[in-house]
Computed example of a mutant assay.
Amino acid sequence: MKLTVPTWLTLLRIVLIPVMVATFYMPWQWSNFATAAVFGLAAVTDWLDGWIARRYHLYSAFGAFLDPVADKLMVATALFLIVQGHPTPWMAFWAAVIVGREIAVSALREWMAELGQRATVKVATIGKIKTVVQMVALLCLLYAVTPDKNPPRPQPWLGEPIFHIGDWLLAAAALLTLWSAFLYLRAAWPALKEGERREAGS
């Protein structure tokens, strides 16, 4: 198995997950900054490995498998940390929507791949917008929340507390998540129905 530069960057993103967890729970005054910085670095590697793969045609089957896995692990871990630091019903609900959507769409893509229709549920523009909004939201919230359930840090940004900005953006990301999942399902529905008819007739 050949490890390309994009694959190494993807592996780095996975390695950063326990680092992010460790910095979140460290009793340092600047641990929130370190946690957000680790997540930000992971987000940069996510963009960079895709750019390098496209620019220099460094594609591999292992990298194609590992990249979405690393993304989902990083996002899910960040959400778990945020909910632990700010355990409100709405925060838990938004986190559940985002994680649940990732599981559902991954299952849908696997099913479509078995039908030979994986391209039907390829990443769309709405999915990319959702990813950007989600990453900014998680970055703000990781910076603002604390693991000991104290009130979020009140640092302002653009005239608003960073926590409130992250909270609103996470809600927006969750709604975009539901919308993109609906679009994927609508695009896949004809192929799914056709697959059911074939199985019924065999």
Rank of each mutant, 00 (worst) to 15 (best):
T4W: 13
V5F: 15
P6S: 03
W8I: 11
L12W: 13
L12T: 14
I14C: 04
V15I: 07
L16A: 09
I17E: 06
V19F: 12
V19L: 12
M20P: 02
V21G: 01
Y25D: 06
M26Q: 14
W28T: 09
W28S: 14
W28L: 15
W30I: 06
F33S: 06
A34Y: 09
T35S: 15
A36K: 03
A37W: 06
A37H: 10
F39E: 09
L41N: 09
V44K: 12
V44G: 07
T45D: 05
D46W: 10
L48K: 05
D49Y: 08
D49G: 15
R54I: 11
R55H: 13
Y56V: 04
F62P: 00
F65G: 00
F65V: 02
D67K: 04
D67P: 00
P68W: 07
M74E: 05
M74R: 04
T77S: 11
A78I: 03
L79G: 06
L79N: 07
F80G: 07
F80R: 06
I82E: 13
H86E: 14
H86R: 08
P89M: 02
M91F: 14
F93I: 08
A95Q: 05
I98Q: 02
V99Q: 02
V99C: 02
V99W: 01
I103G: 05
A104D: 00
A104Q: 06
S106V: 06
A107G: 07
A107D: 05
E110A: 12
W111I: 00
Q117W: 00
Q117Y: 03
T120G: 00
T120P: 02
V121E: 01
G127R: 03
G127P: 00
I129L: 13
I129W: 05
V133M: 05
C140D: 06
L142A: 07
Y143F: 15
Y143G: 02
V145C: 14
T146V: 13
T146L: 13
T146P: 01
T146F: 10
T146N: 15
P151N: 11
Q155T: 12
Q155F: 10
P156C: 02
W157F: 15
L158F: 13
L158N: 05
E160Y: 13
P161K: 07
H164M: 08
I165L: 15
D167I: 00
W168D: 03
W168V: 03
L169W: 12
L169V: 14
L170Y: 10
A171K: 01
A172P: 07
L176R: 09
L178T: 01
L178G: 15
W179P: 00
A181G: 15
F182W: 13
Y184R: 02
W189G: 02
P190C: 09
K193E: 08
K193R: 12
R197A: 13
R197G: 03
R198I: 00
E199L: 14
A200N: 05
G201E: 11
